[in-house]
Amino acid sequence: MMQIYAILENNIYIEMAIATLEKNGIPKASIYAVPLDNRGEDRKLFDGLHRSDGTSLIDIGVALATAFSVIGTSIGFELAWGPIYWGLIASFIGFVLGVAIRLFTEKVLKKRKRLLKGKHPEVILIIECEKTMTELVENILWKHFALGIAKVK
């Protein structure tokens, strides 16, 4: 006997895969479906020491700080405090503006996109079958859009 584990999205293809397996001689008692729960909490915006989501909040801020400091320095030659102070002031303004833009895109725009797209929970299918049936079961699962398959003897 072998066990085949497959992960599928929770949609109509699971029902179709189970029906096809039953038509091909796998009894209902040998098929077990376990739905996975979605994460209840939202993802955190700021990264921690041991976790990072791969997005940076300061990338636009650093770019705008550089651009604003060049402009502030060149304008500062004609102003009272001089180019160094005006370059630093403009750099700070550019950095704050860039971080504000990035926070707005992460909190508002990407949250809307996540809500529209939605999260699809996944289901683990566990199928017990004879070694001779494993190739057939795998082909059926792949045809019904399995995300991944594992075999255990």
Rank of each mutant, 00 (worst) to 15 (best):
V96N: 06
F92M: 09
G82F: 04
F77R: 11
A90K: 02
S91A: 15
R39V: 12
E122I: 06
I71V: 14
E22G: 09
V152T: 08
I89V: 13
T73F: 11
K28I: 06
A6M: 03
L45W: 01
R114W: 03
I7N: 07
G76M: 06
R39A: 09
G48N: 12
I18D: 05
I124L: 03
L88Q: 05
W81M: 14
K28C: 10
S30C: 09
A67H: 08
D47Y: 05
Y32E: 03
A80V: 14
I127D: 00
G48C: 10
T105W: 01
I7W: 04
L8E: 00
K113V: 06
R112H: 01
R51F: 15
E135R: 14
K153S: 13
S56H: 07
C129W: 05
E138P: 10
A33L: 08
T20F: 03
P35V: 05
N24D: 10
R112Q: 01
S30K: 07
K111P: 03
H144M: 02
V34N: 10
F46I: 04
V99Y: 00
E78I: 12
I75C: 10
T134G: 09
S56Y: 02
V96D: 04
V99N: 02
Q3V: 14
H50D: 15
R102S: 06
I75D: 11
G94W: 09
G87Y: 08
L125C: 02
R112W: 00
V70I: 12
K111R: 15
I58C: 12
N11D: 06
G148Y: 14
G94P: 05
N24Y: 08
R51E: 15
S91P: 12
A65S: 06
I58A: 13
R114C: 02
I26K: 00
H50Y: 15
R39E: 05
I127C: 01
A17C: 06
Y13C: 10
G148V: 08
W86M: 14
V34L: 10
S69H: 08
N139S: 12
S91H: 07
R102A: 10
Q3L: 14
E78C: 13
R39D: 01
F46L: 06
L147M: 13
G48T: 02
I31R: 02
M2K: 14
R112G: 00
I126F: 09
R43H: 05
K23M: 08
G82T: 10
V123Q: 05
L115G: 02
S91I: 12
D53F: 15
A100W: 02
Y5T: 10
A6K: 04
H144W: 12
T55Q: 06
R39Q: 11
S91D: 08
K117Q: 15
K153W: 15
R114S: 03
R39H: 08
G25Q: 05
A100L: 04
G87A: 11
E15V: 06
M1P: 08
E106W: 00
R39T: 05
S69V: 07
L97I: 12
V96W: 06
W81P: 10
E106M: 00
K131H: 13
R39N: 12
P121S: 11
S69K: 09
D53I: 12
V99S: 02
I26V: 08
A100E: 03
D59V: 11
N24I: 13
A19P: 11
S52N: 14
I124H: 07
L8D: 04
